[in-house]
Amino acid sequence: MADAPESTGTVSDAVRGNWVDRLAPPWSRPYLRLSRADRPIGTWLLLLPCWWSALLAGVATGGPSWWLAWVMAGCGIGAWLMRGAGCTWNDITDRNFDGRVARTASRPIPSGQVSVTQAAAWMCLQAVLALGILLTFPPLAIAMGIGSLALVCIYPFAKRFTWWPQIFLGLAFNWGALLGWVAVTGSFHPALLLLYLGGICWTIFYDTIYAHQDKEDDALIGVKSTARLFGANTARYLQYFIIGTLTLLAVAVIWALVPQTNILALVVAICGVWAMGWHMAWQLRQLDIDDGDTCLRLFRSNRDAGLIPGLFLAVALLV
């Protein structure tokens, strides 16, 4: 169990020397920490499926355009805001748990840096700003974006009633795999469902690694996770989620791009999925479930894993 942190201290699992701790005005730091601005990996993991989907739509519909550029930028701003709102909601609902876990006891609410009322106001402000971005998208994309709020609200409670809270995180964090294409084209393609499911497999993979940091505290307070469920067999189970990720993403890319695009663009896009698989396999070889520092490092490396297919899709956009 954690000792009570100092109310002005940094968050224990933040990147050392991050811009919030160094440059942000002191009054703003607790709010930025609620939004995880000092831990940007979550924003990347929320954003990347949006970019996969938007870029895939760009390849399928004939190449780059000013509207695709705006969707990419809008998704970036929206991901930062909605990740911040979601994390603030998570901290509000988990405030009693967080104070009892070493890694999370230094977060702003359990450490007394902000009140629940202040946190709720900050959450609402972020959500309203994100809505402003969403309203620039086509009507179907707006409806889908608003629909995702139910998943965001449910996720913090999942670890209280299921051993698979990572599935609920995946459902919320990969909603952009559905939204990005719709924002670009104004219509839905069934291949997006496979892209979404592939992203969920990826989320289970990386968040199981992340959850191994807390498994001892989680066991003491009764919080469930796939890390506790898989235990010593984690590496074997994560192999299945690598296979699921790659298979679903590859089929989604093929379905979306054939016959709308040329064979070279299709090959480039598939190579991006294959290269992401190599990165995930590398993570699995490095994994030590009993070393919290290694688990955190590998979890953070999934920004690079997710950027790989995005970069290949950007190349496919130009060929």
Rank of each mutant, 00 (worst) to 15 (best):
V20T: 10
D21I: 05
D21P: 08
L23R: 09
L23N: 02
L23A: 15
R29A: 05
P30E: 05
P30L: 03
Y31A: 10
R33C: 06
L34T: 06
L34V: 10
S35I: 04
R36E: 02
R36S: 04
D38C: 05
D38L: 08
R39I: 10
R39N: 04
R39D: 04
G42D: 00
G42C: 03
G42Q: 02
G42W: 01
W44K: 00
W44P: 00
L45S: 12
L46M: 13
L48A: 08
L48R: 00
P49S: 11
P49C: 12
P49Q: 03
W51P: 03
W52K: 03
S53A: 03
S53P: 13
S53T: 09
S53I: 05
A54Y: 13
A54V: 09
A54C: 13
L55G: 09
L56W: 10
A57W: 15
A57G: 14
A57T: 12
A57N: 14
G58E: 11
G58I: 11
V59M: 06
V59G: 12
W67D: 14
L68W: 13
L68E: 11
A69G: 01
A69Y: 01
A69D: 00
W70Q: 03
W70A: 07
V71K: 01
V71G: 02
M72F: 09
M72L: 15
A73F: 07
G74R: 02
G74E: 01
C75E: 02
C75S: 13
G76D: 03
G76W: 07
G76V: 04
I77H: 02
I77Y: 02
A79Y: 01
A79S: 14
W80L: 14
A85P: 14
N90G: 01
D91P: 03
D91M: 06
I92K: 04
R95D: 04
N96A: 14
F97K: 11
F97I: 15
G99W: 07
R100S: 04
V101D: 02
A102L: 10
R103I: 02
A105C: 00
A105R: 00
A105D: 00
A105S: 09
S106L: 11
R107I: 08
P108H: 14
P108R: 10
I109G: 07
I109K: 13
I109H: 10
P110A: 05
S111T: 04
V114W: 06
S115F: 03
T117W: 09
T117L: 11
T117M: 12
Q118K: 13
A119I: 07
A119K: 14
A119C: 08
A120F: 08
A121K: 10
W122Y: 15
W122I: 07
C124I: 10
L125Y: 07
L125G: 13
Q126Y: 02
A127H: 13
V128Y: 10
A130R: 01
A130Q: 05
A130C: 04
G132R: 12
G132E: 05
G132P: 13
G132C: 14
